[in-house]
């Protein structure tokens, strides 16, 4: 067990270094520190001295990856890459290029993101499983057929249409919800309800159809036939055997997605003006704020690794044959 944890952690660190290197190279291929300084200082009356001053102040006046002027280990450490990456591992994200503390920003933005993402996640899971179960129960009838048609049709529609259409009809024409905006605390539900509905609807088609296949696979197994042959009611077969067993692949698949709820929803957040991490990411891409992009990539990578870990653990929990080794 201990060996497993140590190996996992070492591997995670290796991956995080790789991730950092990739983002770093990609970003600085696009942006020189000069560009970043100009972006921050604006377009008017910028003098070369001011640029130099900004770079020195923000630690961008060193070489990128290799400092040939320094001596000894300084060759690798007195560089932008080393200095900007090392602190990330302590989750010290530092300040964005505009001076705001990124750690603080991530903490305050996590709330709105989760307020949107958790309901979408939970409600979508419930709705999709219920509907899939419904289809599986009525398998090979016209209900099942049209249900699948509905799923395929719904998954063929781009999320953008759901958002644009929903916002237009429900908020603009029917005046049922605020068009966009957000408020903290208990009042949040008024703002989150519409994006949640849209989030659930847009995930409906593909997930419900996938779960239906899982249920049908379970239905075709021998033990279900046996159970039915014993004369158990269809209802009992469905809930006690099929649902319970099919939940294993569903849940292990879903567990990996949980950490990503923290990253926020890119589209919904920017359309509905929810100040979460998704819109933070988009803003940072558009403003070319390297510090924020790098922090979000790092955060995403960490969450991904956690997701992998959770999947492993959930496998061992549901299937005792799998061991940590």
């Amino acid at each position: 067990m201990l060996a497993y944890i140590v190996r996992r952690v070492l591997y995670a660190i290796l991956i995080l270094i790789g991730v950092n290197l990739i983002t770093f190279v990609l970003f600085f291929f696009v942006n020189s520190p000069d560009d970043m300084a100009r972006m921050q200082l604006g377009a008017k009356y910028v003098t070369p001295d001011a640029l130099q001053k900004w770079k020195a102040d923000h630690g961008y006046d060193k070489p990128l990856l290799w400092n040939s002027k320094a001596s000894g280990p300084g060759k690798a450490t007195e560089t932008i890459f080393y200095e900007k990456s090392l602190r990330l591992f302590a989750f010290d994200f530092g300040a964005a290029e505009d001076g705001r503390n990124i750690g603080n920003e991530i903490r305050t933005r996590m709330g709105p993101s989760l307020a949107l993402q958790i309901p979408v996640f939970v409600v979508a899971l419930c709705v999709n499983i219920t509907f899939a179960l419904f289809l599986a129960f009525f398998r090979a009838t016209y209900l099942d057929f049209w249900g699948v048609v509905l799923c395929v049709a719904m998954m063929s529609i781009s999320t953008l249409f759901y958002i644009i259409g929903g916002q237009y009809l429900i908020s603009k024409v029917w005046h049922l919800f605020p068009i966009s905006g957000y408020a903290g605390g208990l009042d949040a539900w008024r703002f989150v309800l519409l994006p949640v509905i849209i989030g659930v609807v847009s995930s409906f088609g593909s997930s419900a159809r996938l779960y239906r296949t899982l249920f049908l696979e379970e239905y075709s197994k021998d033990y279900v036939r046996t159970a039915r042959a014993k004369g158990l009611a269809e209802r009992v077969v469905m809930f006690r055997h099929v649902l319970q067993n099919a939940m294993i692949p569903i849940l292990t698949g879903v567990v990996a997605a949980i950490p990503f709820l923290f990253m926020g929803a890119l589209l919904s957040e920017s359309f509905f003006g929810i100040p979460g991490l998704g819109s933070y990411t988009i803003d940072a891409i558009q403003a070319q704020d390297f510090a924020v992009v790098r922090s979000m990539v790092f955060l995403g990578a960490v969450l991904y690794i956690i997701g992998l870990l959770l999947t492993d653990i959930s496998y061992t929990l549901v299937d005792p044959r799998v061991r940590f080794d």
Partner: peptide, 10 residues
């Protein structure tokens, strides 16, 4: 794994 762990949009 490294490539995968970078959020796609970024």
């Amino acid at each position: 794994t490294t490539l995968n762990s970078i959020p796609g949009v970024l």
